[in-house]
């Protein structure tokens, strides 16, 4: 190492006319060079539970002896109940028609069969197919389909708003949109058959997503270019967690329209789609972490 002080003292010696040189440096093994940045004191360690402020995951819930605290167990059970209720819900009769959608049903007969036979949920029932062929305009740019999926509750609560916003965003880009369709007992791949029947360039299906703990109200959107039976998930693009605590409809709709527009421009979708060329319609900045909805109040006397 170089010594500022030693240089100063050598100068002082020279001023006094000292003839003898400074003694030589002592030989030493090399020392690790100091880092570009001086080490600063470490931050205090995270306290247990601090991470839970940044996620809705069950982190830092603590324990009482060898078990969870009662409010944690009750919250878990309540959230699981929300998910069960969402899966068990069905689209009510006449809901689609009341909300201005053309009702369609798949080959599934009842809710139990819907859960057990995904393949039947991907094809239209014969009478629904006939109604689609008779009533839906053909040769459109984009066919948007609302469906129940695994959460009819989400479909009925948030579906119409997301549908309207998406259609408005598509029309704003000068794209033609097909008839409003609402499918019951539908799986994602149903969009292939419907899209092919109406000859749409892009099919979008908005459907209730598999409920998680406390989220029974989430919708997903799946988009496919050139819909046809036999398209795989590699041909699709999707957005999930379309709900108030995830991506709200007013943010999701312009992104879905941008995706559909890019698919038409690039003539492909899924793995082949160049996402770098999709219009950046929404700034992807920092978004505050989700807040866990408390379904159970903690007890009073503490």
């Amino acid at each position: 190492m170089t010594s500022l002080t030693r240089a100063l003292v050598a100068e002082a010696r020279a001023r006094r006319g000292a003839a003898d040189p400074m003694p030589p440096r002592i030989a030493l093994p090399p020392v690790v060079a100091p880092p570009a940045r001086v080490y600063v004191a470490r931050r205090p360690p995270l306290t247990p539970g601090a991470a839970s402020a940044h996620t809705t995951a069950l982190l830092g819930v603590g324990h009482v002896g060898t078990r969870y605290a009662t409010d944690v167990v009750l919250q878990f059970q309540a959230e699981l109940a929300v998910a069960h209720e969402a899966v068990a819900a069905e689209l009510t009769d006449g809901w689609a028609k009341d909300h201005g959608f053309l009702p369609l049903q798949t080959r599934v007969a009842d809710h139990r069969e819907y859960l057990l036979r995904p393949d039947l949920g991907r094809r239209l029932a014969p009478d629904a197919l006939a109604r689609l062929q008779a009533e839906a305009p053909k040769g459109v740019d984009v066919q948007v389909i609302l469906a129940d999926g695994l959460s009819a509750l989400a479909c009925m609560q948030a579906g119409p708003a997301l549908y309207e916003a998406t259609v408005a965003a598509l029309r704003a880009r000068g794209l033609t949109v097909g008839a409003p369709l609402c499918a019951k007992f539908a799986r994602v791949w149903l969009e292939d058959e419907i899209g092919a029947e109406v000859g749409a360039k892009v099919a979008i299906i908005l459907l209730g997503e598999r409920p998680g703990l406390g989220t029974g109200d989430g919708l997903s959107a799946y988009l496919v270019h050139g819909p046809a039976l036999g398209k795989t998930d590699g041909d699709r693009n999707m957005m999930s967690n379309l709900h108030a605590r995830g991506t709200p409809a007013e943010e999701a709709a312009p992104r879905l329209a941008a995706l559909a527009h890019a698919m038409i421009q690039q003539g492909t979708s899924g793995v082949g789609l160049d996402l770098a060329k999709v219009d950046a319609v929404i700034e992807r900045g920092y978004r505050a972490p989700q807040v866990r909805q408390r379904l159970v109040e903690r007890g009073g006397a503490r």
């Binding site: 190492m1 010594s3 500022l4 002080t5 030693r6 440096r25 002592i26 030493l28 093994p29 020392v31 690790v32 100091p34 470490r42």
Partner: peptide, 22 residues
Amino acid sequence: AAEPQSIEDGLAALTACLAHDA
């Protein structure tokens, strides 16, 4: 320090400073 190696690095720097500077 949090672990012994940092102590070693620190002592090496300390030794060099005493021999060559302070």
